[in-house]
Design a protein around this nucleic acid. Structure first.
Lengths: 342, 342
DNA sequence: TACAAAAATACAAACGATTGCACAAAAAAC
DNA sequence: GTTTTTTGTGCAATCGTTTGTATTTTTGTA
């Protein structure tokens, strides 16, 4: 019970496989009537082209590799979805891998994608990753790489990033306007671009307002638990009156810590997060946060890749494309009523 | 600048490609010393095996197709992640497609997977789908299909489903214990197994308690908006005092409607949802809901597929495998304090 | 030293499509 | 009615592996 091939179709029609191939490809060198006959026969025999064989022969596959730290994170799953939305109509499929935030798994995943001869790779790096050699090697092997969100300039190709600086700047400035002055910053490793950019935005806003931010920045505080711990320490030892957290999870931990001190958000302390996780608008008090446009990012990444594959890269191919973010002002930072969006 | 092939390695070593192939595959028919030489040379030349060619020759690929309604839904993204966790170590990769809940896209996605000669398919049907012919055809072509969550018996192969009946039964019984008697049910299309099972559980619990459930069941209410509308209508016209919603989104809409009537949850009206979406524990009042174990489901689906691919299907291969669910009792249904889990 | 058995390698044919080139038949031009 | 051009097909090589079979080399034994 073998699957039908173009050879089977050719034989049952008394032509050669080449003609069948051309007919199915819509090649104009085959007569209209033959094309019809072939197409009908193909349908009749339930023919499914073997893309594997075609890829081998053509030396190019129509599969695009996608590599993310975790598929099930809200942000990443939405980027994936957006990428798929663009790539599918263009005739590409997605081979998806996750690195689980591990540098080693990221490396292996890239190798897997290369072994599968993907037409290109869209990826976001693991937190751990400091060696970008493997991603660079992909480009050496003529496999275009588009990075998004967590990017590194050591890898050639387009980089689509959120406007982390502006998001952070807007968030902190908003806190300052609300009258908060001792604003702490909880974030992740500053060797990761997203966090270093957010830190820069924070710092810029603080300095612009001539506020001191010494000893109020913590790097390893990105989960709910670490956010809770660091916030506890800061409240106790640094007289802070607001927090700008580089993530929503640590914001929740922070609010928990504030609550335990018998203080109120936002009256006693303001909190602004980053990412607008699904729960951010539902918690009490509702969390002000910086919204990232995952869809926009996914669309841009996919389009950038398609342009490269088609050989029409934009002029500034190796430059960063910045996706705007929005500050969502909710209850957790709203000491005085103001507009809902800045 | 061609990529190195086993032929290149063979030539630079003065052996044949077959030997190289066998050496790299760890075949014991090749001498230890040759194997070493080959492996070193392969490393030196930066050889990346061409899986496409290997797949063609072997007639089987190590790619598994995964088809879900939407990648970015909390439940599905977690199932995908779990599947990946099992499949990756087993040497498989995931080709992922989404149907966007459209029957036509589901059909096309299956064709894409078949054209890519995937080793198997793990899928959950779109809401729309009523014709399961294409999925069945996959199995005809010897591509094993494992269905999960939204399944249909018309397609041969394992079906991994949540214990929708028990979940619904527990939820409704819990409401009844809390003293609620006029319990309405908002759900999706009853032609989808997950909803029909939940409805059965609801009905069974109601009848067991000799409660009437006439004219209190609505099918097309699964989003926040439709949940809001139907709830509004029910409160106005049917004197209901509780809602069992087949999803968390419609639960939110329901609570909104209740709130608008000036009634309190849970004191005046109880609400229980289904799915335990990320926001469920964060909203006010916290939503009682039925938790599905996406990870468990993903693991089981992946393992079932691997067993089939390896030719060791379990005896009851065509039977359903039921994943237990948990009722999470939170504030929205807790008129009187009881245990947090039943 | 010769010879059988065992071990290691070579040969060559797949897998299923694509595609440059050759070639026939038909159409157009002279 | 030739010659030239156009048009439609066929031929055969190719993509990079894998693998059954043949062949060589090595090893062991008499």
């Amino acid at each position: 019970m073998k699957r039908t091939t173009i050879i089977d179709i050719a034989q049952s029609l008394g032509v050669t496989p080449s003609t069948v191939s051309r007919a199915l490809a819509g090649n104009l060198r085959v007569r209209e009537s033959t094309r019809k006959r072939v197409q009908e026969k193909a349908l009749e025999m339930g023919y499914q082209p073997n893309i594997v064989a075609a890829s081998l022969r053509r030396g190019k596959s129509d599969t695009v590799g996608m590599l993310v730290p975790r598929i099930n994170r809200h942000f990443f799953s939405h980027v994936i979805s957006a990428v798929e939305e663009v790539l599918n109509p263009a005739g590409f499929n997605l081979l998806i891998c996750q690195s689980h935030e591990r540098a080693e798994q990221e490396k292996q995943a890239i190798q897997v994608l290369l072994k599968n001869r993907v037409a290109g790779i869209i990826m976001s790096h693991a937190m751990e990753t400091v060696d970008f050699e493997m991603a660079r090697r992909a480009t050496d092997e003529r496999v275009p790489v588009v990075q998004f969100d967590r990017v590194n300039a050591a890898v050639p190709g387009p980089r689509i990033i959120n406007d982390n600086f502006s998001g952070a700047y807007m968030a902190v400035k908003h806190l300052i306007r609300g009258g908060y002055t001792r604003i702490a910053h909880l974030t992740g490793s500053l060797s990761v671009n997203v966090y270093s950019e957010r830190f820069k935005g924070y710092k810029y806003a603080m300095e612009e307002a001539s506020l001191d931010c010494g000893e109020m920045v913590f790097e390893g505080a990105i989960t709910r638990e670490t956010g809770y711990e660091k916030a506890l320490w800061l409240i106790k030892n640094r007289k802070v009156d607001a927090f700008f957290c580089a993530g929503d999870h640590s914001s929740v931990g922070t609010m928990q810590a504030i609550h335990e001190f018998g203080l109120k958000v936002p009256d006693d302390m303001g909190v602004v997060g980053f990412a607008n996780e699904p729960f951010a608008g539902f918690i009490t008090p509702q969390l002000s946060t910086v919204e990232q446009n995952a869809y926009d990012m996914g669309h841009r990444a996919a389009n950038a890749l398609i342009r490269i594959i088609n050989g029409n890269p934009l002029p500034g191919i190796d430059q960063e494309e910045v996706v705007p973010v929005r500050l969502l002002v909710r209850e957790s930072s709203m000491r005085t009523p103001i507009n809902n969006t800045i």
